[in-house]
Structures are given as structure tokens and as C-alpha cells.
Computed example of a mutant assay.
Amino acid sequence: MPDGSRDFDPESPDEREIAGEAARDRDEFLSLMGHSYRGELGRTTSWRTRIDRTTNWAVVLTATLLTWAFSGSERPHYILLLGVVMMTVFLGIEVRRYRVYDIWRSRVRILEENVFANALDPEGVEQSNWRELLSHDLRNPTIKVSVVEATSRRLRRVYFALISVLIGSWLVRLTVFATTPTGLVGTATVGEVPGVVLIAGVGVYYATVVVLTLWPNRRQAKGELQTRTDSEEWK
């Protein structure tokens, strides 16, 4: 029986190490990298779609709440604050999805930078140990972006604008439809919660959002489009 048609023995040491032969054969290695790239790109696209879906929910909810809240003077103002709460929930979901998405995106970028870019213009690889980096990440997948950085990036991209619109609309709603002699503070009262407490709470919340949006941390996420031209080493 020819060697190519012999039975496959998964317990054989040679068979267990068969993938290692691709590392010593240029054609097999490049073919393997192409398949790997398509697989990682498919994962990246799938998680990018999940992030976009959450963003769509947030935008639709914001538009719906604004339309409903200003459709009549009898509409309760706190519905806009409930919208802020929902934006925070969506933000939390999107931060988690973004951190997982970055796992696959970072692999795509390391292949693009060190294989395809160098094939098009062979000036040298970006990371001389890119094979070691990719091998380690495949063996031990890890989340590379911190919660703070992911939150800051999603706030900058989408949620800071949506939250600002909702809070600004809430303040306008209190001002335009003020129904008590005490003005904005009195109108902000909800049940047993004094208006001054509610306004102070919203102020603290928004200040926290501003700080997170402008958080000056070193970039760890890799692969997003940037306006600056210098690149940073992938970790």
C-alpha cells in the first residue's frame, strides 16, 4: 500500500507533529498562513457584526426616546434618564464584545503586517518574532485590551455622543416643561427622590463618563484605523 494512503494513526509521534513539517516547507507554510488568515478574518467579521448590532440598538433607542419624550408636555422627564441607564447597559455589553473581538483582530493584523505587507513591499517584517507571538497567542488566547481602554474607545466612537444627547435633552426637558415654582430643581423631583439629589447624581455620572472618554492611557488595542502615522509594538 502506498505511503500516502496508509491509515492515519493519531497516537503516532510522527503524526502528532505533522503540522511542524509545515514550518520547514515554504510552500506549505504560506498555504497554511492563507487559511489561517481567512479563518481569523471570518471570526473578526463575526464579532464586528455583533458590536455593530449593539450600536444600532443604542441609536434606535435614543431616537425613539427623544421622539416620545418631546411629543407632549405630560411625558415624564425621567424616561430620558432610563435611556441613559440603557445606554450604560449597552456600553457594558459592547465593551465585553470589543475585548473578545480584539483577540481575533490582533491576529489578523499581525499576519497583515508581517506576511502580506512584506510580500507586497519586502522591506522587512514589523516584528521579527511574529511567528512566536502568533504561536503563543494561538496556544494561550488572552484578552489584550483592559476594561478601561475598551470603555474609553467605545465612548469615543459612539456612546459619549449618545449619552450627551440624552442628558442634554433631559435638561432641556426640565427647563422647557418646568411645572413647579422651584424651577428646574423642583421639576427634576421623581417620587421621593429630591430633584437636587437626582441632578447631582446625573452630574457625577456624566463627569465619570467624560473622564473615561478622555482617559490618557497607552494604546493596547491593535488594528483600528488611526490618524497618526507611527505604529506601536504589539503586545
Rank of each mutant, 00 (worst) to 15 (best):
D3L: 14
D9L: 11
D9S: 09
D9C: 04
P10S: 04
E11H: 12
E11D: 10
D14Q: 10
A19H: 09
A19L: 12
A22V: 06
R24G: 14
R26W: 10
F29R: 10
S31L: 05
L32P: 00
S36A: 15
R38W: 01
G42C: 05
W47D: 06
T49C: 08
R53P: 00
R53M: 09
R53A: 15
T54E: 14
T64H: 03
L66Y: 07
W68C: 08
F70T: 00
I79T: 07
L80V: 05
V84T: 02
V85I: 13
V85C: 02
M86K: 11
T88P: 01
F90Y: 14
G92C: 08
Y98E: 00
R105K: 13
R105P: 01
R109P: 00
I110N: 12
E112L: 11
E113G: 02
E113W: 05
N114H: 06
V115R: 04
F116K: 04
A119N: 05
L120F: 07
L120A: 10
D121K: 10
D121T: 06
P122D: 02
E123H: 10
G124W: 01
V125D: 02
Q127S: 05
R131S: 07
L133M: 13
L134E: 07
N140L: 05
I143L: 13
K144P: 00
S146Y: 07
V147D: 11
V148M: 14
S152F: 12
L155R: 04
F160Y: 11
S164F: 05
L166I: 01
I167K: 01
G168H: 03
W170F: 15
L171G: 06
V172T: 11
R173M: 05
L174A: 07
T182D: 15
T182N: 12
G186K: 08
T187E: 04
T187C: 03
A188S: 03
V190E: 04
G191F: 12
E192M: 08
P194Y: 05
G195M: 04
G195Y: 04
G195K: 06
V197M: 12
L198K: 09
L198I: 14
G203E: 03
A207R: 12
T208I: 13
T208V: 09
T208Y: 14
V209A: 13
V209K: 13
L212E: 05
L212H: 10
L212D: 09
T213V: 02
T213H: 10
T213L: 06
T213E: 02
P216E: 03
R219A: 13
E224F: 11
Q226Y: 14
T227S: 08
S231R: 14
